[in-house]
């Protein structure tokens, strides 16, 4: 069996396929045209094949998302690449007050086929304004769906779902994840396997050997996969704690149903994300789980995220701020220790 493709190749192939299949689909973004092919090479080859529908734009994030909104309003479909997700702040008005509002504020459903792609996250030393995970700033906007790229979710399926939804979405793509490989055929590595909790394949579940063994459940955004797996490996092999990880494709609205049985079984749940502290996506997930499983959970849902800080540039400083495998492992151990203490008293 050949090695699975890299995530960036999977995403590039997905964009090719969607542009080929739908002559009404446009892609806009800064420096997305060949030969450059985008700051992260996600759009490589697209402008050569799809010419006028792949548009390199001026540095105008708000304007680009507005143009994409106009195309969508007129019945076309549009993908926008924001070079660094941080710059989506410049397009916030178009997302908050136009694209997501237009779906419903005219009193009847108005379909808007629009996806804004945001390369996100740190770990590459790009500094405070090029390393953020802005997911939390888009949580809770009516009519705006948030998805995150993962190695378990084929990007063609995910983008197809987002473009077909009829309401706009933001797709968060962890920049480090681009270089990793997709997981295929239920195998993550020599230790972990994966399956899906739901028919649609939106909730990937990663476990070691025995899916029945479960001391703690992690719910993690796709970009956290590698760090969560590292923590899970050490927890299993060193600490003898069986942890499973659920990676949802869609972060918001968060559909809790497929996760409930596992969360109830584990009784201890941590939500892991790279966002800095405060008003996080994890807090939203926790609130939903608390409401549904208050009697069942043994501990409040633990939020695992980066520090309450800007993200520094120097590697060693950045590492101190960003959530890492060690943060996750420590959180899980502390939750389980608290549980044991409580059950002893």
């Amino acid at each position: 069996m050949s090695r699975p493709e890299r995530v960036v190749e999977n995403l590039n192939r997905a964009l090719h396929a969607h542009l080929a299949a739908d002559p009404r689909l446009y892609l806009l973004g800064e420096d997305v045209e060949d030969p450059y092919g985008g700051a992260f090479k996600v759009t490589k080859g697209l402008s050569t094949v799809y010419g006028e529908r792949v548009i390199g734009t001026p540095l105008s994030e708000g304007g680009i998302v507005g143009v994409a909104g106009g195309l969508a309003l007129a019945g076309d479909k549009a993908l926008v690449e924001i070079m660094f997700g941080d710059f989506a702040a410049l397009a916030f008005d178009q997302l908050l007050n136009f694209a997501s509002k237009s779906v419903s504020m005219y009193g009847r459903p108005v379909p808007m086929h629009l996806v804004v792609r945001c390369p996100s996250g740190g770990g590459r030393g790009y500094g405070p304004t090029h390393s953020q995970s802005l997911q939390k700033h888009f949580v809770g906007i009516p009519g705006l769906a948030l998805y995150e790229m993962s190695p378990f979710h084929d990007n063609h399926d995910v983008l197809g779902r987002m473009l077909g939804a009829g309401s706009p979405g933001v797709f968060f793509e962890d920049k480090v994840l681009y270089t990793h490989r997709m997981a295929a055929a239920g195998v993550v590595d020599e230790l972990f396997r994966f399956d899906f909790l739901d028919q649609a394949g939106e909730f990937a579940r990663i476990y070691a050997d025995d899916p029945g063994e479960l001391d703690c459940l992690l719910i993690g955004a796709g970009g956290m996969t590698d760090r969560a797996l590292t923590a899970m490996r050490e927890l299993l092999l060193v600490d003898e704690i069986a942890v499973q990880l659920v990676v949802p494709s869609r972060l918001y609205p968060f559909d809790v149903e497929p996760v409930l049985p596992l969360a109830a079984k584990a009784g201890v749940v941590c939500v892991v994300e790279e966002s800095t502290a405060g008003g996080t996506w994890g807090a939203e997930v926790a609130a939903v789980l608390h409401t549904r499983l208050w009697e069942t959970l043994r501990r409040p849902v633990r939020l695992v995220h980066s520090a309450d800080s800007i993200i520094p540039t120097a590697t060693h400083l950045e590492r101190e701020v960003l959530v890492g495998a060690a943060t996750i492992r420590a959180a899980v151990k502390s939750e389980l220790a608290s549980r044991r203490e409580r059950s002893l008293t």
């Binding site: 304007g63 507005g66 909104g69 007129a74 136009f98 237009s102 108005v110």
Partner: peptide
């Protein structure tokens, strides 16, 4: 207000990029 080929929005300036997108269409 939205009716066929007519749309109004309440945020200043917001409609110009959107109109450019519709013009492109």
């Amino acid at each position: 207000i939205l009716r066929d080929g007519y749309l109004s929005t309440g945020v200043q300036g917001q409609s110009l990029p959107v109109a450019a997108g519709v013009a492109m269409h």
